[in-house]
Simulated assay, not measured.
Amino acid sequence: MKQVSRNDHFTILLDERRGLIHTIRSDKPFSSLEELEVAFGELGATLDGLGRARYALLCDIRAAPGRNDPQFEAALQRVRPRWISGFRRVGVLVKSVVGQLQIQRYARQDGIKRLITNDEDELLKYLTQED
């Protein structure tokens, strides 16, 4: 895997051989909703440049700080599609059952199918299987 991009909030790795983009959310909280919007804008632009339809996406959010205040939730709902839409498959790697439940709620809101698990091997198997 090669690193494509890195900032305070996200690292993006590309595995051409397996057709996989791996996004890793850091443990740094967003200091403002504006910072969230900027970070997701950069993330989306980088993923667009890689060609989403060619890849599966692994979102590793295990280190992400928990937050669910209404303003944050509304902003995240607006920007989340810039992260996960347009890929062959999407998988989300979580740390806890609470995280899994939150991402399941997001999946219902977004209407974008994704596997949500804390088992990295299971997730990689799902993301790299043929369509």
Score class of each variant (00 low, 15 high):
41 G>T: 11
98 V>M: 10
46 T>F: 00
23 T>S: 10
124 L>F: 06
68 N>Q: 14
127 L>R: 06
10 F>H: 09
87 F>A: 06
66 G>E: 00
76 L>F: 03
38 V>P: 00
128 T>N: 05
102 Q>T: 15
78 R>T: 09
101 L>P: 08
99 G>Y: 10
123 L>F: 02
53 A>D: 11
90 V>M: 11
2 K>Y: 10
86 G>Y: 14
68 N>V: 13
87 F>H: 10
42 E>P: 00
23 T>H: 11
94 V>Y: 08
17 R>L: 04
40 F>M: 09
116 I>F: 04
27 D>Q: 05
119 D>N: 09
54 R>Y: 05
65 P>V: 10
50 L>M: 14
107 A>Y: 01
22 H>V: 00
27 D>L: 12
109 Q>F: 09
71 Q>V: 06
62 R>N: 06
54 R>L: 02
35 E>G: 07
65 P>H: 07
117 T>L: 03
56 A>Q: 03
20 L>A: 05
71 Q>W: 15
75 A>Y: 03
96 S>Y: 07
22 H>K: 02
101 L>C: 03
109 Q>H: 15
25 R>F: 01
68 N>F: 08
62 R>M: 09
27 D>E: 03
8 D>R: 06
56 A>I: 01
38 V>F: 01
77 Q>M: 06
14 L>D: 02
48 D>T: 13
78 R>F: 01
35 E>M: 00
48 D>N: 14
80 R>F: 08
53 A>I: 02
4 V>N: 12
7 N>M: 00
34 E>G: 06
47 L>Y: 03
87 F>Q: 04
26 S>T: 11
18 R>D: 01
24 I>R: 11
78 R>Q: 14
55 Y>W: 13
65 P>R: 01
125 K>E: 14
94 V>L: 15
62 R>Y: 04
101 L>T: 07
94 V>Q: 05
103 I>V: 13
62 R>Q: 08
5 S>P: 11
11 T>S: 15
130 E>W: 02
112 I>F: 01
61 I>P: 02
122 E>K: 07
119 D>L: 04
51 G>S: 07
110 D>L: 11
69 D>P: 14
131 D>I: 09
84 I>V: 15
21 I>N: 06
5 S>N: 10
60 D>F: 12
97 V>L: 13
93 L>N: 15
109 Q>T: 05
14 L>C: 04
124 L>D: 06
105 R>K: 07
64 A>Y: 04
126 Y>H: 05
24 I>W: 09
89 R>M: 12
94 V>M: 07
62 R>W: 07
82 R>A: 13
74 A>I: 03
101 L>V: 08
107 A>P: 02
42 E>S: 00
109 Q>E: 04
43 L>T: 13
16 E>G: 09
5 S>D: 11
17 R>M: 05
82 R>E: 05
55 Y>P: 03
45 A>M: 02
6 R>L: 06
37 E>R: 09
117 T>R: 07
4 V>I: 12
96 S>C: 14
